[in-house]
Computed example of a mutant assay.
Amino acid sequence: MTLRRFLPPIHIHPVLLVFIIISFLTGTFIELMIILGIVLIHELGHFMMASAFRWRIRGIILWVFGGVMDTDEHGTRPLHEEILVTIAGPLQHLFIYMLLLFLSGNQFAPSSMVEMAFFYNTVILLFNLLPIWPLDGGKLLFLIFSGLFPYRRAYHSILLFSLCLNVLLILLLLLAVPFTLSAFVLFSFLTMENRKSWKERYYVFIRFLLRRYQGEASIKRVHSIEVSCHSFLMDVFNHFRRDRKHTIYVTFPGNNRQAMDEMDCLHSYFHERYYQKPIGEIVRHVS
């Protein structure tokens, strides 16, 4: 085993470097290092679980508002794998609690530092479990939606839910609860991230389809889809689900049906480029 399997490349965002310099000048360096240490342990939890499933991982990125594990896996791994990888991060906070209890009991660290770490560990854990994309709570909610709905509908639903919740929390900060600038900045940042994700939703869905076309999708069972012969390929793809192989039944006038495999649909879209051709014509051409 290589060292990279246990310690991935860790990249520090340039803006975070600026904050580190500011922390030196303002006397908050220890506080910032405690926060970054907790975030790094959290992300290493994701990394270790993902490595156990042999995911393709570029590294861990630390930035001002937290961290992220940079991976090439996007909706192609089995649902249970993505759930385990997602919850592996929050579970690391339990390990941090045990470590802090050990340090406080043996007086290996100043009590003020241990109390500060307890506080930030709790805040980061609770914040990360909020059902807001792309926090772990939001990712778990998306994975639940993915098990219930087609992929595109699930992705749209989590983004809309997350965006509405962000706006609601910002309004609460402004109108109903004591205002804190840090919370306002965090939720404003998440709102901008949700808005950016919403703008890129089509490309995320195309990437999901392309990975299926390349044979990288996890398949556990067959799911049938019934569409009209006048439907387009994108209408069919809107019914695609994770962990499913799809058999498409094209209905013609007179209730005549003809079956088509999902790979034929994907090939017709990505290779033949039948973007605006009714699937009734495509299925006759394929057969």
Rank of each mutant, 00 (worst) to 15 (best):
L3Y: 03
R4S: 05
R5C: 02
R5A: 03
I10W: 11
I10E: 12
L16Y: 15
V18W: 15
I20R: 10
L25C: 14
G27S: 08
F29C: 02
I30C: 08
L32D: 02
I35L: 10
L36N: 06
V39M: 15
G45Y: 12
H46F: 15
F47C: 13
M48E: 03
M48S: 12
A50N: 10
A50G: 13
F53T: 01
R54H: 15
V64G: 08
D70P: 10
E73P: 07
T76C: 14
L79E: 09
L84G: 00
V85L: 01
V85F: 08
T86H: 06
A88N: 12
Q92C: 08
F95C: 01
I96V: 13
I96W: 00
Y97N: 01
F102S: 03
L103A: 11
L103F: 07
L103M: 11
G105D: 12
N106A: 03
Q107R: 13
P110R: 14
S112I: 07
V114P: 02
F118P: 01
Y120M: 05
V123S: 04
I124E: 07
N128P: 00
N128Q: 06
L129T: 09
L129Y: 10
I132P: 05
I132M: 12
G137A: 11
G137N: 04
G138N: 07
L141D: 07
L141H: 00
F145A: 04
G147K: 12
L148N: 01
F149I: 09
Y151T: 04
H156V: 07
S157M: 09
L163K: 01
C164W: 09
L168F: 11
L168W: 03
L168D: 05
L168A: 09
L169G: 06
L171F: 09
L174S: 06
F179H: 02
A183C: 02
L186I: 15
F187R: 10
R195S: 08
R195G: 13
K196H: 05
K199N: 11
Y202P: 01
V204W: 15
R207F: 07
L209N: 10
R212A: 03
R212G: 04
G215Y: 01
R221T: 13
S224T: 10
I225V: 08
S228K: 07
F232W: 03
L233P: 11
M234A: 04
M234C: 00
D235W: 06
F237Y: 04
H239C: 11
R242E: 01
K245L: 13
I248Q: 10
P253M: 02
Q258M: 03
A259T: 04
D261N: 13
M263E: 02
C265S: 08
F270H: 05
F270M: 00
R273W: 05
Q276S: 02
K277F: 14
E281S: 10
